[in-house]
């Protein structure tokens, strides 16, 4: 296996007024292709920030960040947006579905940026929703779905473009135990069956057990494996 994510000496600080708040301190790590990495740590430890950097929705203050062969820290905003659409699938804690769109339309959203025909989009959306077990809920709006079902729609949206990496930020954080278990099983399946590299941030040790490797962050530093 080769490293699909390479983080070298990355630091990240935020500025509040004129005060610099360091979040990540000279952090380095590698994630192998096909790996399921669990990032754990207390609130404020920098795990979501690290996930955002890997996903290309935030930029490091310092250091090198190579993801899927691209030095994403050097990409322009528009190039980065294009790169994200083809390389990264996102799963959020609060699902972040568009409430006025059906499950089908929500999953179809990322495909609108591609050159797929309507028929191809239909096939991909139906496949993604079938994988997550919602083939019979395509015309449902988010408010007509349970939390677990909404998260599964979000996962279908994340995989519909067939990205190489899935990033998940507390994907079970807003779910009951049963739904959380279903989501974790689904993610495990995506990793093992569909060979997706997954980076998952979680507070939940039970969720982290699904990961093939766990990393702990504390105050911006990796503290143990």
């Amino acid at each position: 296996m080769s490293a699909i994510i390479q983080v070298k000496n990355v630091s990240k600080s935020y500025w509040r007024n004129s005060l610099e708040i360091p979040v990540l301190n000279n952090l380095s790590l590698e994630v192998q292709e096909g790996e399921f990495l669990g990032l754990m740590g207390p609130s404020g430890s920098g795990k979501t920030t690290l996930l955002n950097l890997i996903a290309g929705i935030d930029r490091p203050s310092d250091g090198e960040l190579t993801v899927a062969g691209t030095d994403i820290a050097k990409l322009s905003e528009s190039a980065l947006a294009k790169w994200r659409s083809s390389h990264i699938g996102f799963v959020f804690q609060f699902y972040n579905l568009i409430p006025v769109l059906t499950a089908y339309e929500n999953v179809e959203l990322p495909l609108l940026l591609t050159s797929f025909s309507k028929a191809e989009r239909k096939q991909r959306v139906e496949t993604a929703l079938t994988i997550v077990g919602l083939g019979d809920r395509m015309s449902h709006y988010p408010k007509q779905l349970s939390g677990g079902q909404e998260q599964r729609v979000a996962i279908a949206r994340a995989i519909v473009t067939d990205p190489v990496i899935l990033v998940a930020d507390e994907p079970t954080g807003d779910l009951d135990k049963k739904s959380a278990q279903e989501i974790l099983i689904l993610m495990d399946r995506l990793n093992k069956e569909f060979k997706k590299t997954i980076v998952m941030v979680t507070h939940d040790p039970h969720a982290a057990e699904k990961a093939s490797r766990q990393l702990h962050l504390e105050k911006g530093d990796l503290v143990g494996v």
């Binding site: 929705i57 947006a81 294009k82």
Partner: peptide, 9 residues
């Protein structure tokens, strides 16, 4: 979310 999914300005 739109920006994350790759939608541009």
């Amino acid at each position: 979310v739109f920006k994350t999914l790759g939608f541009s300005a």
